[in-house]
Amino acid sequence: MRLHRLTLTAFGPFGGTQSVDFDELSAAGLFLLHGPTGAGKTSVLDAVCYALYGSVPGARQSGGQGATLRSDHAAPGTRTEVTLELTVAGRRLEITRQPPWERPKKRGTGTTLDKAQTWLRAYDATAGTWKDLSRSHQEIGEEITQLLGMSREQFCQVVLLPQGDFARFLRADAEARGKLLGRLFDTRRCRATLGCSPPTRCCPGWR
């Protein structure tokens, strides 16, 4: 998986719209995401997870999908939105998610609730255009999980290292780690060649 661009609006500490160009950041290789406490480092990672899976890591899911994601600094008429452009399994995709939003009514006083929205698009390199694939939460969730080969919980354990879940992954028993790493790195050829079944010394998860 390669991330290209992340755009946040009214998400976490970001009241307006902010964009992260991962292609530019990674042009020289590795890059460091740093800043003082409260600068929004974790919120950037939360936004990536939310775009992919429709929820944020671990304990920060409390309060529902929309309530805790929306920035306290956002203007009343600005809707929370996350858009992630990435390449996975050779396909360039764009995922946009908007959590439920209690917005001011267009007429009269009070508020009304807009439902959550999700879009998935794929880039057609031949035509040079984006093609709509789905607006179904369930279809998009299944598609992303299949392409990444990881559930949200596994993604948070293995990829989002700062969240602390990686430490729990390291403390897991050999069988649990072997199953996950075997799925991530596709060790079927190794097992077929050596005739072993995890956990063994030739397979991930052995200790």
Results as ranks from 00 to 15, higher is better:
residue 10 A to P: 04
residue 40 G to A: 11
residue 144 I to A: 08
residue 78 T to K: 00
residue 96 T to Y: 00
residue 77 G to M: 11
residue 104 P to D: 03
residue 206 W to E: 01
residue 155 F to A: 09
residue 203 C to T: 15
residue 185 F to I: 13
residue 206 W to Q: 04
residue 72 D to A: 12
residue 51 A to Y: 08
residue 153 E to N: 07
residue 39 A to G: 07
residue 117 Q to A: 02
residue 87 T to N: 10
residue 134 S to P: 12
residue 197 S to V: 09
residue 36 P to E: 12
residue 48 V to W: 01
residue 5 R to N: 02
residue 43 S to N: 13
residue 59 A to W: 12
residue 50 Y to I: 07
residue 128 G to S: 05
residue 22 F to Q: 13
residue 58 G to Y: 09
residue 128 G to K: 03
residue 129 T to P: 01
residue 156 C to D: 15
residue 46 D to L: 08
residue 21 D to A: 13
residue 97 R to T: 06
residue 204 P to C: 14
residue 98 Q to A: 02
residue 195 G to A: 06
residue 174 A to V: 08
residue 35 G to Y: 11
residue 141 G to E: 05
residue 40 G to P: 03
residue 202 C to W: 15
residue 201 R to Q: 12
residue 175 E to C: 04
residue 6 L to C: 08
residue 169 F to D: 09
residue 179 K to C: 03
residue 177 R to C: 10
residue 158 V to Y: 15
residue 88 V to L: 12
residue 144 I to Y: 08
residue 103 R to A: 15
residue 19 S to I: 14
residue 80 T to C: 15
residue 126 T to F: 08
residue 11 F to A: 04
residue 149 G to A: 06
residue 113 L to M: 05
residue 138 Q to Y: 04
residue 89 A to N: 15
residue 14 F to D: 05
residue 141 G to V: 07
residue 28 A to R: 15
residue 194 L to I: 08
residue 34 H to L: 03
residue 65 Q to G: 04
residue 25 L to T: 11
residue 32 L to G: 07
residue 24 E to K: 12
residue 78 T to P: 00
residue 162 P to N: 07
residue 77 G to H: 14
residue 207 R to L: 14
residue 11 F to N: 03
residue 56 V to K: 07
residue 77 G to Q: 10
residue 163 Q to D: 10
residue 10 A to Y: 10
residue 65 Q to F: 07
residue 122 A to M: 04
residue 125 A to D: 11
residue 82 V to F: 10
residue 174 A to H: 09
residue 120 L to Y: 00
residue 49 C to K: 02
residue 197 S to W: 05
residue 95 I to A: 00
residue 86 L to R: 02
residue 177 R to P: 06
residue 76 P to T: 06
residue 50 Y to F: 15
residue 97 R to V: 08
residue 38 G to K: 13
residue 111 T to W: 09
residue 39 A to E: 02
residue 193 T to Q: 06
residue 186 D to N: 12
residue 32 L to M: 08
residue 135 R to W: 05
residue 155 F to K: 01
residue 119 W to V: 00
residue 114 D to R: 00
residue 198 P to S: 09
